[in-house]
Structures are given as structure tokens and as C-alpha cells.
Design a binder for these strands. Sequence first.
RNA 1: GCCGCUGUAGCUCAGCUGGUUAGAGCGCCUGAUUGUGGAUCAGGAGGUCCUUGGUUCGAAUCCAAGCAGUGGUACCA
Length: 493
Amino acid sequence: MTNDSSKNTLKAALPRGLRDTGHSELDLIKNITSKIIPVYESYGFEELSTPSFEYTSALGKFLPDSDRPNAGVFSFQDDDEKWLSLRYDLTSPLARYVAENFDKITKPYKRYQLGNVWRNEKPGPGRYREFLQLDADIIGSNSYGVDAELIMLSADSMSSLGLNDENYNIRVSSRKLLDAILALVSDSEDIDEVRRLTILRAIDKLDRIGIDGVQKLLSEGRKDESGDYTIGAKLQKASISKILDFISIGSQSRDGFISQAIELVGENDLGQSAIEELRSINNILDKLSYNKSVVFDSSIVRGLEYYTGVIFEANLVSKDNDKNLPVIGSVGGGGRYDKLISRFRKDQVGASGFSIGVSRLCTVMQMMDLEILEENIGPILILNMDKDYEYSYYQMAQELRAYGIKAEVYLGSAGMKAQMKYADKKGSPLVIIEGTVEREKGIVTIKNLTKGKEVSATIGSRDSWIKNDEIQFEVIRSEVVKEISQILKKDKT
RNA sequence: GCCGCUGUAGCUCAGCUGGUUAGAGCGCCUGAUUGUGGAUCAGGAGGUCCUUGGUUCGAAUCCAAGCAGUGGUACCA
């Protein structure tokens, strides 16, 4: 019979691309957001929360059709047959919210939002179908100051995590500038929307496939390592070299970028206005001493469609990479999206925003092995030695907690050895022992597990651990809290 | 979505061209040490060999499909 019942057991499993998050990553997330959010608030951003799903039509132009009802988004039908979708970013719900409450909102509206988003795409390492984003957006202003502010905000956010110029950079470009270059190209040939996207995608891939690869994608096409062939934009030679000239400005000092871009853009109006914006932003950044951390970079493209002006990306870079190229990748990005709210309203509303991929940022910071985020210390464990005096253990725990020190009493009556193992696994720094021996003397024994671990490699016999009075010592019962808080303070430094 | 690779103990993996009771390291449990975690020593538990079907006297091994992970590519509002 036991065999039969095991057959009927449900297999415990999570769907593809989803995962559970354990306490150590949750601690890290808490740690990171508790540093970035105050930065947002210091700039005057207010928090907003919106539901996890909405009408599909409100989220974007992707209405599920019968062939592919879930392409990219998770969708389902309500009982009135209307399509609903889980949000795939925090920007579209914001656009809906602003449009719906337009007259109540004080503009420019500065909002931040922390929340999960869902994407129905192929998952990969560090790419999940559910992940946490932290967004800051400013709605209702066309001023370049908005973009400058968001760039500074993103730089300040990275700094708040203890990262410096060598660990991160913000790379800035302009969609308008890209369009100006394309406009110059289209003087000699027809650039329709399909071709435009092909060109933008090609530029976006510079990091991965290099300038040769981009060139191939701008001309006939490119065969990749897997044998797949991607059809190119089939541009004329002169057009290709114009675009390649722009790309090869590359990532560099903001002044250098501007002076080179001016030459390429010439008299083009769109280009002139793009340069004017970048110049104004540069001015502010200069005056406020944002130097090495913010660069202008002609290969930044960011997603597609939706952006209309300044665009930027935050990257963490590896220390041993002197070229300052991002080897680890983008942890956030943003830009101006002036047309998004016009889906809901006739008039155009200026908007610009910045989004941090929190889960991504966590993994990347862990990969970089930055000793910026302090490790979480476990609770102090009070051993459960004597049932008759259990209350005394709870008293000690209460005293410690009142001092803001994490403490727990061992639950149950396992042997001392098992209790010590429990303390070890929970990451307890200290253990408090109050058995009959101690109680009769009015003392407790404190064992320092952290110290013990340090010297464990060099110590042979068991007796010498216990006799080492740095590892284990006695304290008068009434001095426990004072003593422990001192040890914790000392161990921290 | 397309192409490739991988899937064996809790973890990392070994298992030659099909052939007896499927192995190692780490971890886990027990004891040496009934009031002491981490070192050392001795012992022990633990496996639908991803799933389903096929080929075969015989499959962890070969074949097919599915699932999951991974690399590349496409897409990413």
C-alpha cells in the first residue's frame, strides 16, 4: 500500500522561468532598495502602487489574438470576455494611471514604484519570467532638465549602494539623434519602418557582434555561430558608412561626443535640436561634477518604438577592465517617451523615466563580489537546557530584543550538541548557555561561534576550544545584554 | 520561435564501443565526546540513472518524442 500512495504523490515543481527567493537574497533586495528609495524620495518622488494586471489594451498595443494569445505577455479572459494581462513593466500602468487621474495629479508628477513584472519569454540565466523592478518617472514636462535629473538620479542610486566610478557608468544617447542620422541616410534611399527597426537593432548589437557584425547587418546580412542567417538592411555603401561613422563615435567624454556628433549631423534640424538637448544636459552634469560616471555613447539604442528622446543605461563594470566597457551588463535603463500617454489623451504629455532591474542588480552585485553590502547576522541562540527554568531563557531573549538584538530560544529539548548545530546553521554569532551549573553561580556562559570558526582550523583538541577564553567565557547574569551588545559592536569593526 | 549541448545520491560529477549487487568527493546521520557547532577518526543512511514509448535475450548506456536546464540566434512593447 505504501507504494501505491507514493505513486499518487504530486510532484512538487515550479513552472519554467519562475523561482523561489530565499532569505539571503531577500535580505539583499531589502538592503538595496532601502538605500535607493531614500535617494528617490530626496528628489521629491512619491510612491505609487498599481495592480498586477490590467486590461490588455491599457498595457500596450499587443492585443492577444487567437493564434498567439500570450505572445510576450501572460493574458487571460475575464468572464465578460475582456482580455486581461499581467503587467510586463511599470511604465504602461503609470501611463494609464496618469491618464485616468490627469486632473487630480500635480504636474510634473514624480512617481516611484517597486513591483514585480511578468514576461512570457524564453527564460535564461539571470532572466526570469517574473522579476522585480524599481522605477522612477517624471510625467508632464518636456524640459531637458527632467532627463538630466533622471540621469543624476540613476548615478546617485548607484553611488548609494557604495559603487564608485570604477564599478558603474551611465551611458547616454538620444533617440532623436539616431533618427537624425537615419534622416540623412534616407535622403538617398527609402527608409521605411521595417528598415528603420532593422538598422536600430543592428546598432544595438554592437557590444555583442562588433563593428564588422553591425556592418554586415546593415548590408546583406550576417551568419551567426549557430548557423542562423539574419537578413540585413541592404543599405547602399554610402549610407552604411554614414551610420558606421556615427557608431564609431563610441563611448567617450561628453564634450568629445558632442563635437563629433555635430559634424555628422550638419544642418539637419532634428539633429541640431538633439545636440542642443545633450549639450544642456552636459552643462548641468559638468557643473554638478558628474564626471567619469556619465558618458555619452552612440551605441545605446534601448528597446524599440516607445522612446522618443534622450535614452540611457546603467551598467556595472568589472574592475579589471581598463577599457571601461561593461562586461557584466545593464542593470537599468530609461529615457524619454513623450508619446506613451497620448494613447489615452489627445494632447501630448512629456514623460521620461528610469527603471532598475532589482533582481538583476542583486545577481550582478553578487557576481562582482563587492564587499559593499554587509552580511546578515543570525540571531543569538539561547540554549534550552532546563525545562523548569525555560522562562529564564525567554526573559533573556526579551531583554536582548528590547535592545534591538535578534535572539531566539531553542525550541524543543534536543541535546546540547544538536542545539549547537542549529546555532551554527542559523548563523548565530553567539550562544548563551545557562544550565544548572551557571544558574547556581548566578552567571551564564557565552560562546562566541564567530571567533570559534576563525580559530577552528588551527585547533586540534576539543578541550582547547572550551578553554580558550576568547571563545567561551562566563558573564554575570545581569550583565548579559551589556556584554553581548559590546561583543557585537566589536566584531562588526 | 530556430539550431546545438546537458539531465545519474541533497550538491558537484565519474560510469570505456549496451552485459551481474550503479560509484567517488563534498554534504547528511550515528558514535569516539550522555554540557559544547566548526578540526580528526570509525561506521551508516540515501538512487523511479528526467519522463514516456521503442530497439534488444538484456538499456543509465542505442533510437524517438516530451519536459527541464544551458549556449548561440531571433524577439523583447
